[in-house]
Design a protein around this nucleic acid. Structure first.
Lengths: 110, 110
DNA sequence: CAGCATCCGTTAGGATACTG
DNA sequence: CAGTATCCTAACGGATGCTG
């Protein structure tokens, strides 16, 4: 059976900036991307690394990020299954954004 | 009477990064900040500049941003009333973040 | 392990009428 | 003009059990 929580990619956003914000928004999105900046990671690893997230949210985010070509998913037909997530070129290019947010956070939220 | 939609500042976030993300997230937040980068603006001006937003959302965002010291509000006892919103030092310091997001948006979302 | 399904409460966001 | 109030819907997010 198909998925229940099928993702609906919001089309027809106004400007690219809004679309970017739409992507960046989301409680866990940037944390996941940030975590993946360190290198590829398996599902369970991510679940442990991104403190506080739960399975459903992680699955959801990963799917959305995959759809948006921010991350890529590689599954291996092992038993038990192995799935590796890593940033795409597009995903990696978010690094400067991440850096600036972190810099701002350190200086201001303290 | 007090406000109905009283803002509840989410306390006890984990790390500063999460807090920053919590601030940045929000459909209109960055657009408003971006608009205010150009200089101080009145309520109605903002409502017109931030395309697609409605009164309730603008009020809500402005209040939240004021609470977080990102913008400052100056009201003048004229008739009809005049209220000017402008970025604080803290708000202006978000400029690099904005720049990076926009750069990324232009390159990737196209 | 990787993940989908289900139940469920909370928040975000939208439309719009109204007031000092 | 600068908001407030009210009504509503759609996402977001959390907990947890189950399966190939």
């Amino acid at each position: 059976m198909a998925l229940k929580d099928e993702k609906k990619i919001k089309k027809s956003q106004t400007c690219p900036f809004q679309e970017a914000m739409d992507l960046i928004s989301g409680k866990w999105t940037m944390s996941i991307i940030n975590t993946l900046m360190a290198g590829k990671m398996r599902f369970k690893e991510l679940e442990r690394s991104v403190v506080g997230i739960n399975t459903r949210m992680l699955v959801k985010e990963l799917k959305q990020l995959e759809n948006r070509k921010i991350i890529s998913r590689k599954a291996f037909a092992t038993m038990p299954p192995t799935v590796e997530y890593s940033l795409t070129e597009k995903g990696t290019s978010l690094k400067p954004v991440l850096v600036e947010i972190q810099a701002w956070a350190m200086q201001n939220v303290v």
